[in-house]
Structure formats: structure tokens, C-alpha cells
Computed example of a mutant assay.
Amino acid sequence: MNAKLFSPYEVKGVTIKNRIVMSPMCMYSSFSKDGKISDWHYPHYISRAVGQAGLIMIEATAVTEQGVISDQDLGIWSDEHIEGLKKLTAGMKQYGSKTAIQLAHAGRKSMYDGDIVAPSAIAFDEKSKEPKEMTVEEINETVEAFKEGARRSKEAGFDIIEIHGAHGYLINQFLSPITNKREDDYGGSRDKRFRLLKEVIEAVKTEWDGPLFTRISADEYHEDGNKMEDFVYFSKEMKKLGVDLIDCSSGAVVRARISPYPGYQVRYAETIRKEAGIATGAVGMITSGIQAEEILRNERADLIFIGRPLLRDPYWPRTAAGELGVELDPPYQYSRGW
């Protein structure tokens, strides 16, 4: 079978050998609490490269110490982080996978032991710390931190950068009218709420000329939140700025009851792809090769982001290939048992 799932995908001179992306998933395993790679990360990510994932995107990596989700998150706020990340990218690439990093800032959802920041002084919930409303100076410093994160990502050898604008973290907080109540140039209208992301993209691109993705939460599960027409608009604007693909997730701006089902987020990727004219990645309860193939063949998305199935099975691409009648070439060390 000529499976599209196992066809290459090229973006800005980077060729991903298949359409399977390991979705970024926090490991909370920087055990030294300094944001550095630990011994856990090497076998975790490199085994997925052995398993033949086309692109491996490492977890949300904080551009400032204040922007961590937990004190065991990875960081890229210092040049001291580059060495470990460089060793990790080299390890993944030797098995043919391309590598990506998700640059992030948690904003009001940070568990940092100190002041946390957000567009407005609104806590995530009654159990969460109230954030400090960011000054324009702090916004500028954060934009610069994303820029420096891009520089370090390049030095560490990543092929692709993704900006984390989803799941209720800082950029998502600026985009959403639920969490952004500012009355200056960074709040109010849709254009003003987009301003931080626009400036982050522009700053990143001064250091990075490779493929650039952005993850968004394309459904905020709240009547006062952004609607699909807003996300289509944001996606069109990102395309103008040079973003190559929108990674379409949903939720986590506020606590909401979600009833997921297989492929429940694919419609977001499909709508944005068609209406914004930009490549998209589909994610969310995509568990089989047959399901992934349907999404690609019907042009609902361009890449398939796989999360929990790759936690359960580092060789999920092999399982998917078997479903689709595709033969994968294993690393020679595994040839007798593949």
C-alpha cells in the first residue's frame, strides 16, 4: 500500500521521512530543578527515534525560569542548557528522525516559587496563585527571552521550532478574551490580543530561518472565549508572518469538562487548513495507522501528532505500518526481531 502516513513531508528545506510526529509531552524530569536535561530524557526520546517517528518534538521548554510549569520542567533560558540539548538532538538524528523543540512560558499556570505573571491579574482557579499583571517592560523582556530561546535552539541543533500558544499558557492567555482584560496595546481587540504572539514570532525569526510551527488551543470550551473564526484569523496572520504549520489542540484556558472521542480535535486542523490556507497538524486520540491515514488522505491535516500512544509504545510507527501494509527498515541492530 502506498500509505500517505509514511510519505515524506518537506518544509523549508527540512524533509521529515514520514508524517508521524511525537507530540510534545511534559516529562517533569529535570531532577536537578535547573531546567537541564537529565538521564531520563535520552532513552525516552532516542527510543522513539529508533521506533521510526519522523519528527520528535520535545516537551514544553521554558524560555524563562519564571515561565516553567513545574520546577522540574526543561528550560532554555541559559546557555548552560545548550550542551545537554545538543547531545539529545544528535542522539535522535542518528536514527533518521528530525527534531523539534517547543518554546514555552506558563504565565499564570506556572508553579514557580516566586511572582508569576500574566496579561491580567486573574488566577487560573481558586487553588492557584494570583499572577502579577505584566508591565510592557516585562512583555518586552519575555519577547526577548523567546528570541534567545530560538538562538539556543539553533545552537543545540534542532530542525524545527514550535511556539507554544495553547493550553492556557502565557501566549494563549494573551490571545483569549477570558484571560486578557488589558486596556493597553496588548488587550481588547482581536488584533491587540494577537500582538504578543506577533512580536514573539517576529523576534524568533530574527534568530531562526528554519521551519516554524505554532500550537494553538482552537477551542476554549467557554462561551466568552475565542471562536473558530478568531483562530482562522490568527492562523492567517501567522502565515503572513512566516509560520509554516499550525498544530491544532484545544482547551485548558479555563477548567472545562471535555468529552473526548477518537479524533475529536481533527476538525480544528481541517477547518484551519482549508479556511486559513496553511498546513496543519492534527492531534488528540489518534491511535491507529488506519485512523491517521484517513485524516491525511482526506486532506484534513498535513502531519499527525501522536501523544499517549507513543508513551505506551515507542515503536508505534511499526504498529501503524503493519496496519497499512508498509515495511519499515529497522535499525540493523533490531533486524532479527523487527
Rank of each mutant, 00 (worst) to 15 (best):
K198G: 10
L170C: 12
E137C: 01
Q173P: 07
V204E: 09
L175T: 06
N140A: 14
K205Y: 09
H164E: 11
P211F: 12
A121C: 00
P211R: 09
K181T: 12
D191I: 03
G210Y: 11
E207N: 14
D191F: 03
E137H: 04
L197S: 13
I116V: 11
I201W: 10
Y169K: 06
G114T: 02
T179F: 06
E130H: 00
F194M: 13
A145Q: 03
A118N: 05
E183P: 00
S189C: 07
A156Y: 08
F174T: 07
T179Y: 07
F124K: 02
D125N: 15
I122V: 14
I161K: 03
T142N: 13
S189F: 03
A166R: 05
E137S: 14
K127M: 13
E141P: 01
K127Y: 15
K205L: 13
I201T: 14
G187E: 07
R182W: 01
K198N: 14
A166Q: 08
D115E: 14
P131L: 06
A166F: 10
G149R: 08
S189R: 01
V143L: 08
A145V: 07
R193E: 13
D159H: 07
E148S: 10
Q173H: 09
L175M: 13
L196G: 11
S153H: 08
V136C: 05
I161Q: 05
A145N: 05
E148C: 01
A145C: 09
H164M: 08
L196H: 11
A121D: 06
K181A: 06
Y186S: 11
H167E: 13
F194S: 02
K147A: 12
F124P: 03
S176Y: 10
R151D: 05
V204D: 09
A123T: 01
N140F: 00
F194H: 07
K132C: 00
E137D: 15
E155P: 01
S120I: 04
R190F: 00
K132S: 02
T206L: 15
E141C: 01
R152Y: 04
V204P: 08
F146M: 05
